[in-house]
């Protein structure tokens, strides 16, 4: 297979970037998208060029490192798929592939296609945990949890923190990311105790980090590689509302 590649190149945060056009021939349809980029980089390097920087690690769709905006969609044309799981057989031979970094004020570009997602970390630091110390936990089976609830909590907890929701959202809102963690803990008895404080803190931090506001367009759900539902955004809205209305001053 042969492709035309249009890739965003930017040396570092301080310099201005631009698109560069390349052609790449002899791509195997069995290659994953990132293998295609490896192959492309190998060519660039041997020809004396600078390889395209992109982030990746596990290459099996679970670490959340990779994330490229491919032909107008985060992680490319397939649903429930990360960039590393995408394969070249999904593309039409001879077509042009446009590869862009995530675009959001909260995700500044570091180099080429690599962005800084530490704003996600900040939100997690604000309250994405259960305040429990090591040791002294009761036997795990002393707290029964309804299977459906536990399964739902798992459905929220599968978030890989890749940032596709922000990249897909026209407002670059982080509502899906934040709500997944808020909901996971709010559903489970272990996290319920501090659910109100948690949602207030995490939402406040989310606002601080410069993400846009959710306007219920649901592009996030559509492009989430783990298929996380916007029902969790609703749950966050609910949790936040009741936290604001019911919480005490001190």
């Amino acid at each position: 297979m042969n492709f035309k590649l249009k890739i965003w190149r930017q040396k570092n945060a301080a310099t201005k970037g631009k698109f560069e056009d390349y052609t790449l021939n002899d791509v195997s349809p069995e290659m994953s998208f990132l293998q295609m980029l490896d192959y492309f980089n190998d060519k660039l390097i041997t020809e004396g060029g600078q390889p395209v920087h992109f982030e990746h690690d596990c290459r099996e769709g679970i670490c959340g490192s990779c994330g490229l905006y491919i032909n107008g969609r985060p992680h490319g044309p397939l649903r429930n798929t990360t960039t590393c799981e995408l394969h070249m057989r999904e593309f039409e031979d001879g077509s042009t592939i446009v590869i862009e970094p995530w675009r959001s004020r909260a995700f500044p570009i570091i180099k080429d296609l690599v962005v800084d997602r530490s704003s996600f970390e900040e939100v997690m630091l604000a309250g994405g945990f259960v305040n429990i110390n090591t040791g002294g936990a009761l036997d795990a089976n002393t707290t029964p949890i309804n299977k459906k609830i536990s399964d739902r909590a798992f459905d929220a907890a599968v978030c890989i923190g890749c940032g596709a929701c922000v990249a897909a959202c026209k407002n670059s809102s982080a509502a899906l990311f934040v709500s997944a963690k808020v909901s996971q803990f709010a559903m489970l008895p272990q996290g319920k105790t501090e659910a109100a404080e948690r949602v207030e803190k995490m939402v406040a931090k989310m606002d601080d980090m410069g993400f846009g506001f959710c306007s219920n367009t649901y592009a996030c759900e559509f492009d989430c590689p783990k298929g996380i539902s916007v029902e969790f955004i609703a749950q966050m809205n609910r949790e936040f509302f009741s936290a604001k209305v019911c919480s005490h001053k001190k």
Partner: peptide
């Protein structure tokens, strides 16, 4: 065994059966 108890207490959503146990 301590590890399982601790993870459970931290809100790790392990698979459960219908009685609510792990």
């Amino acid at each position: 065994n301590l590890v399982i108890d601790h993870f459970s207490a931290m809100g790790v959503p392990f698979a459960r059966d219908y009685g609510g146990g792990l």
